[in-house]
Structure formats: C-alpha cells, structure tokens
Design a protein around this nucleic acid. Structure first.
Lengths: 350, 350
DNA sequence: CATGGTAAGGAAAAGCCTTTCCGTAGTCTG
DNA sequence: CAGACTACGGAAAGGCTTTTCCTTACCATG
C-alpha cells in the first residue's frame, strides 16, 4: 500500500448508513429481510465511500474463493491463446478469477504450482496442454478440488478431459476435398507419436473409404511440425506421385511449405491441386497464396466448454471421461470450389 | 469441496505437536524463539497431516496477498506469450501468484477487472498491451496498489512504463545490413500511426546517416501488418527502385511477403539482396527461405524486468517514467554475411 | 537471597466478512 | 385482549492466521 491508505471496510459503510454490520452485509448481498429504504441507504453509503468488499475475508468465511487455477502443462504455446481466452472469458463472466500458472512441462514446477493453488484455496483447476495424448494425472492422491483437463488428457479415466475431435477434423477435410471433386489424395502431417496425428489420419481415411477411395501409406508423409518438412515432403510427393490432386496437411505450417512447392513446380492451387490445412492459424492461412482452407479446432469454444464443466463440478456435479469437441472447416480458396451437387449426392467431377 | 473434507488447519497441527497455535505458527514460519526439537515436532506434525496453510487467512492478517493482477489490454495477442511468460516466471519465483485478466481493449471490461483485482487485494497490477503508443492510465484516481505498464505505455508520466527500444531495434538492423556491405536501402513497415513504426524507422535512418547514407521517403513503404502488404510493397519496390540492395522490414510477416517476391523475381537472398525482419517470430523466421535475420524485442526479458520493478514498488520504492529495454538481433541468413572489417572501419563491398 | 536477564512458549487480539440466532415492535386473528 | 405471526435489524460466532504482548522457568550475578 504505497499511500498507507487503509481500504474501507464494511464497518465504515454500516456506520455511515446508521445500521449494524450484519444489516449492511445483508443489504449489500441482497439477503435477509430489509426495507427497501434501508438497502438504498447502505448502497448509497457504500458508493460514497467507494467500498470494495474484501474478497479474502469473504472467501475465508464462505469457504469458496471464486478463483480457479489455470495450469498450463507445456510452456505457453500459441494453442493456449484461444484456449485460455475461452476459459478466462467463461469464468470471468461467472465472476471467477483465474490464477495463471505455467508448468513448462516440468513435473516439479507443476507440483509447486499445484501446492500453491491448493494453498490459495482455489475452487477448481483446469489443466491445459498442447497434446491430446494421455498424461499422468495432476496428483496420485485425490485432490480436494475438481480438475478438468482441456486440450490435455488425463490417463485416469475418472478425470474429465476435453479434447478437440481430431478425427472429425480429418473427416471435414476429406468431405471438403471430395466435394471439390478431387480423387487422388495425399497426407502430409506431423509425428506419428501424436495421437492427434493418428486421429486426423483415421478420420480422413474413413471418409475417403466411405466414398470408395483409399489413401495408401506411401502417400502419407509424417515428419516434424515444420514448414520445411512440408516443402520436403511435397517435393518428394510430386516426384513419386504426380497423379495426386489433393493434399491434406496436418498443420498450417506444413501446408505453407506444401503450397510453396506446388507453386514453384507450376501446380496451380486450387485449379490443379486442392490443399487443406489444420489449425486455422490466421497468420499462416489468411495471406498465403491462395488463402488456405483449414480445419479449426474451435479452441476458444473448447476452453469455454471446459470452464463450464469445471463450474458445474464446483457446484457439486461429478463428471468424468472424455469429451470430444467438434472441429469446423474454415473455407478459403485452397481446397477448391465444391462442385454443384446433383440431386443424388456428391457430384462426381474429374 | 467434492468430498466434504475440511482442509487441515494450523490448530490441528498444533494439537498434534502438543504446542499452542502461536508456537506452531512460529515454527512453521521460522520466527520466534523455539527449541529446535519443538520446531521439528511441529514440522513433523504438519507433514503427517499434509498441512497447507490457508493463504486467504494469511493474506488477511498480513495485508499482503502475494498476488498481482495481469491485465492485458488488447485481446490475448501473440506478443503477450513471451511477455506473460517473463512476468509470470519472475513473479512465480517470488512466490507471487498471477491473476489473468483479458481486457480485450474494452474499457468497460478493463474497469470490471480492475475492480475485481482490487477487491481481491492484489499487491500490484501489470498492464500489458501490444502497442507502445500512450494509452489512458488505468484509473484517473490514484490506486491503492502500484501499477506498471509492460509493452504498453501510460499517458500519465508519473506511471511506470516498460517498452522495447524500437529505435535501438532499427539501429541494430541498420548496423547489420551496413556491415554486410549493402548500400541502397528500403524500408517496408506497418502503419505510421504506430509509435513503434516511427521509432524503428528513426533508429534505422539515424544509423544510416552516421554512415553517410540516406533513406529517402520514396523508399519507405507503410501499410498494414500483413504478408500480402509485404508482397505488394516489394513488387512495387522492384519496379521503381531496382537498385535497392537491402530491405528492412517492420515485421516478420511483412518480411515473409518480401522474401517471396524477391524469390519470384529472381533476386537471390542474401546473395543479391539483404533482408532483415522484426519480431523474431520463430514460425515465420526459422523456416523461411533463407532463414530470416530478425530483430528480437526480448519480450520475455522485458516482462521479467517489468515484474521486478513491480515487486520493487510493492516493497515501497516509488518508480515512474519510461524504461526502454534494448533489442537484440537474431542473425540467420537473410541479412547477408558481415564483410570482414579492415583496420579502418566498415569494409566497403559492392 | 533479591534482582535481572533470557529462553521458551502461550493467550488473545486483529484482520474483514458472512451467517445464524435472537429480540423487538408491529399487525393480525379469534 | 391474548396469542401468533411477520418484518426488521442487531449481537456474536466463526473462518484461519499472524503477531504482539505476557507468563514461566531457569540461570547468573552481586
């Protein structure tokens, strides 16, 4: 307190309004049976004094702090931006404040933060990550507060985890490319030890299969999540499988590399080849040539969903298991234009 | 509390250790005069019970919550990632927890969050933004807690603001390009109503002037912070001023567009032209062709610096004014290789 | 033996709020 | 007019710590 000025307490408000402390409390919180006139007098006094109730004292007596911990496993990643926005926004609307903790994938740090949050008596914790693969739960012993894992998955099935539906994302990409008339597909994606990579591929393949098409392994490239890998893979693809007319990329970074190589090799997108990315990351998708059609994981919605569930758990509802939140396709130019549909289904165009 | 389990209090620890509450408190906090044996007994009891002191109660009596509010003005932006990491990390090391509040450039939201933070009795507030231009202070009335503006600048000079030294960034870019032997410069950057844009240009020009070179306005392009603008500007530049051999870009996004056009027009980087970007944003710089040399604003350090200052202010030190934190050049390939220096100064190479 | 110093630890207040319980006054019912 | 409500508002407990001030007991000193 730089100016040594004490914050005004409810006692002062009560005195000024000429009522007891308890009456002031009731008036301010809309409880008890009070005359309207009394309430107004208290409110007036509070306003004049600029009264701000001390949340610390309130939490102490209510045994509810209206705070939650946001514990990000991996170091603050770009995925966490929309996710955290969704969480913070949803909680803030419910007057719940958020403690930010960056675990940096370090179990020791995570433990430290967990203790700190517990000590601050948070009402709940949301653990965020950047991978959908199962991770060890926050604690082996049952915690005194509910926990939800968002874009992160607890290995303990009795925990609640909320993940994007990567398989659905793969299906969306396939449906879009199919409806644009492409028929010979390739997939350039991230490392296969990511569950997300496998799920996206599975969804993509399943939808292709439904259309009687297949994606052989030789046209699936797996490598690091980098633009340069997109370029290398695309170059190899054009050499070995020039017949490919559509590429589904596991990330927008990869897609950018793919786009560059296609361009350099004289393959026009989307006239000759269709391309779909994943992540819908504005910086990469909006100004690429052509603008990149991409699967959006709705991370902000996902965060909001996780927050709502946590709130519900704090209310006492028990929740567990895995929730998969659907993806969405942001259509720009690179995937090609959907062919007009005949009355009988997907319009088959060569 | 899902299991209705009450947290263990210091009373239980004291009872178990066979001492009074105050003795337990002293033992746990390393205060007072206690026999070592007594201390150990208390610690043992605390461990066995899994005691976690209630930070709420502690804050109440100590009048210090060991929390600070992190109020981001603009919606969670990518710049905020390293900035927030720096802040959170520095504060966390000092056992201070961070409340995350996303103001979204909405004064009403900001007001709401400010009240919320004050009510929670934070010890201080750091306001983050994404522009260096002066903004109205958080509040017109003096606040009961210290505030520091990080990558954000209060219009009130009695506030403390911490900003990157954009002018220094411009100078770094110029020095690098000069030492690589380039002599005819252009600048493609963001909107001129950004103070950062003007500062970077000023620093760049000043260093050029020191070397007896100038950058005429006709070779300065100002436009939106977009890759597509980088492309458009580069195309125009090549048409009108083909003699230019070095381009300093106001952001990495712009630089990416510039690199693409140079490449397409057959100008090799860095053999024929040198390019330097700004922001050192990994996704864009590391995998571009060639990898992009870029000015790094040291945002993480900047955040840590702001946090340290805030901590100091919380300790009672008064601080105000503007701190400019230096930039740093991340040298990759695009700027060209510094020419070997002769004994007489910068080596002049065509 | 009176005095004083010191080490060890306890009692109680303070920090600020909510909530339960109770008293008072007024109104209604039979 | 007795008895039963209702509306209003106050007193006090409770939530968990820290900290200040005391009380003991012990030892040394003159």
């Amino acid at each position: 307190m730089p100016d040594g000025q004490r914050a005004v307490t409810i006692t002062e408000v009560a005195t000024r309004a000429g009522v007891s402390i308890s009456t002031a409390s009731k008036a301010l919180n809309g409880r008890g049976q009070l005359r309207d006139e009394t309430r107004e007098r208290v409110f007036a006094a509070a306003n004049e004094l600029g009264y701000q109730p001390n949340a610390l004292a309130r939490s102490l007596v209510q045994r509810r702090s209206f705070t939650v911990g946001l514990l990000s496993t991996e170091s603050a990643d770009r995925f966490n931006i929309p996710l955290h926005m969704g969480i913070e926004n949803e909680l803030g609307a419910g007057r719940v404040s958020v403690f930010l903790c960056d675990g940096r994938a370090d179990p020791l740090r995570e433990r430290f933060y967990l203790d700190s949050l517990l000590s601050r008596r948070v009402d709940g914790i949301v653990v965020t990550g950047v991978r959908t693969d199962a991770r060890p739960p926050l604690s082996n012993v049952p915690l005194p507060v509910p926990v939800v894992y968002a874009y992160s998955c607890s290995a303990d099935p009795s925990d609640l985890s909320v993940l994007p539906d990567d398989e659905h994302g793969g299906r969306l990409a396939a449906e879009h490319l199919l409806s644009a008339g492409w028929r010979t597909f390739a997939h350039i994606t991230g490392p296969m030890d990511f569950a997300a990579v496998r799920d996206r591929l599975a969804g993509f393949r399943a939808t292709l299969a439904d259309a009687g098409l297949e994606l052989p392994d030789r046209r699936v490239y797996s490598g690091p999540w980098r633009e340069s890998f997109g370029r290398d893979a695309a170059a190899d693809l054009l050499d070995r499988h020039p017949e490919v007319d559509a590429v589904f990329c596991g990330s927008d970074q990869v897609a950018r590399g793919v786009l560059d190589i296609l361009r350099e090799r004289g393959r026009r997108v989307p006239e000759d080849v269709g391309v779909v990315g994943f992540d819908n990351w504005g910086v990469l998708t909006e100004d690429s040539r052509p603008p990149l059609t991409s699967v959006d994981m709705n991370l902000q919605e996902l965060g909001a969903l996780a927050a709502r569930r946590l709130l519900s758990m704090i209310e006492g509802h028990r929740e567990s298991g895995l929730i998969r939140h659907p993806c969405r396709l942001e259509v720009r130019a690179s995937g090609g234009a959907p062919a007009p549909r005949g009355p009988g289904g997907i319009g088959p165009v060569g």
